[in-house]
Amino acid sequence: MEKTQLVRTLQIAAMVLIIVLAVGLYKAKTDAAQTQRHVRQLEQQVEETEASLRALRAEIAHLESPARVEEMSENHLGMSVGSESAALPASAMDRHLPAPRRTKAEE
């Protein structure tokens, strides 16, 4: 009886182990599928962010273009590149520049 009881106990333990392993495998596959979906979502977000970054860089390049800056300076400030009217004579610079400030060392 003891031998048959031992064999029966080992069979039950083996069955429990098989069930635990099967449940573990199912959980691992489910977790892997969820992780894979999450990775795909992150990759899509990266692609969208990179596309947005490219668009912003193109906009910056357009906004910083010398031709656009020249046009805006002419339209809004009435200044043109190399115009003599924009240059101040040396005698007028003192009136347009702020007065020098004293430093703590000078006081």
Rank of each mutant, 00 (worst) to 15 (best):
V20L: 13
R37T: 08
E64F: 03
S91P: 06
E50M: 04
E2P: 02
V69F: 11
V23K: 07
S83Y: 01
Q5P: 03
E84T: 02
R101G: 07
V81M: 13
E47A: 04
A92D: 11
E47L: 02
K104L: 00
E106I: 03
M93K: 04
E106Y: 00
L10R: 13
L56N: 14
L56H: 10
E64C: 07
E47S: 06
I12W: 10
A22P: 03
A58M: 15
T4M: 12
T9Y: 14
L77I: 00
N75Y: 11
E2R: 09
A99P: 06
I60V: 10
Q34I: 07
A55C: 09
A58R: 15
A99Y: 02
A86I: 05
R101F: 05
L97P: 00
Q41R: 03
P66Y: 01
S83K: 02
Q11E: 12
A67I: 00
I19R: 13
G78W: 07
G78V: 05
V7G: 06
T49D: 06
L63W: 05
D94W: 08
E70A: 15
M15Y: 12
M1Q: 10
A22M: 11
R54S: 11
M15R: 09
K104W: 00
Q34P: 01
G78C: 08
E71T: 07
R54P: 00
T4S: 14
D31Y: 09
L42R: 02
H96I: 02
H38T: 00
K27T: 03
Y26E: 00
L77G: 04
P98S: 01
A90F: 14
Q36R: 05
L17Q: 13
A32V: 13
V46W: 08
H76C: 03
V46T: 10
I18S: 15
L56D: 10
M15F: 11
L88C: 08
Q44S: 10
H76K: 05
V39A: 14
R8G: 01
E70T: 06
L25V: 12
Q34G: 04
S52E: 13
N75T: 12
A61T: 14
G24I: 06
Q5G: 11
